[in-house]
């Protein structure tokens, strides 16, 4: 296959990996695997926000390109499928058309249906209410708040993606709704409800990926991701803290 075609495929695969929450070393390894599979050597340099790639042919012809990656979500099944794709490229390289078609299929593959996701985020909040030692009332309140906050979050992500503001509002909504629930249902533990409803939005992935990046020697990416995790925690914390501090009367009746 031609130099440019290989570069295109490697770059597309890398972009899908990076924008769906893969670790930096996995993106670099997959790009290198694909290039080597077609008999080219390459250097890939990956940041959480972009990819630099130079591909060299055996007769010392080379081609470089940069790809900016702006949106970063989390979709592990895409990572899984690209992983398989790059492994297949090593064992039996396919043609350009086949490869682009497969990549397009992976790129456009969808999440689970919305109602399943809604149900799951409600159930997560429900389950964690018990895990943190709550009673049945806590669980039921969490079930409702979990669903409401999921709808709120997905609406915000859809309309205008401002990551830290979104997390701030999610934190605030969790805190405020939890305190509000005190007025309707007594015999609940407000702190358990807040934690259980917010837990889904904590940056566990940034944390573990950051550490894995640092471990693999990608120092810049690792520190960037850890910094992102700290900022997200602060945004959620400030949101929840604001909700707690503006409702002293509700909080007083809670204790």
């Amino acid at each position: 296959m031609e130099l440019k075609a290989v570069m295109r495929i490697a770059m597309d695969a890398g972009e899908i990996l990076l924008s769906n929450g893969a670790e930096t070393y996995r993106v670099e390894e997959s790009i290198i695997k694909i290039c080597n599979g077609f008999g080219y050597s390459c250097d890939a340099f990956v940041f959480p926000t972009g990819i630099f790639l130079t591909v060299r042919s055996p007769d010392d012809e080379s081609e470089s390109s940069v790809r900016r990656v702006k949106t970063r979500t989390l979709n592990l099944s895409k990572i899984d499928r690209i992983n398989t794709f790059s492994r297949n490229m090593v064992t039996n390289p396919s043609s350009f058309e086949e490869a682009t078609k497969e990549l397009e299929g992976i790129r456009t593959s969808d999440y689970y249906p919305a109602w399943i996701r809604l149900l799951c985020s409600a159930v997560v909040a429900f389950a964690y209410a018990f895990l943190f030692g709550g009673n049945l009332n806590d669980g039921i309140v969490c079930l409702v708040i979990g669903a409401v906050v999921f709808l709120l979050n997905s609406q915000m992500v859809k309309s205008a993606y401002l990551p830290f503001l979104t997390f701030f509002i999610v934190g605030f909504a969790c805190g405020f709704l939890s305190l509000l629930s005190q007025l309707v249902i007594t015999d609940t533990h407000v702190y358990i409800i807040i934690i259980a409803s917010v837990i889904l939005y904590l940056p566990g992935v940034s944390l573990t990926n950051g550490v894995r990046d640092l471990l693999a020697g990608d120092l810049v990416s690792g520190l960037t991701r850890l910094g992102e995790a700290v900022l997200v925690v602060l945004a959620i914390g400030m949101g929840a803290g604001l909700a707690i501090s503006i409702s002293p009367t509700i909080r007083a009746s809670a204790h």
Partner: peptide
């Protein structure tokens, strides 16, 4: 609960 508590997040991150 622990089982559900990691199965449901797994659904959400697809």
């Amino acid at each position: 609960i622990a089982f559900i508590g990691s199965l449901c997040p797994a659904v959400l991150i697809n």
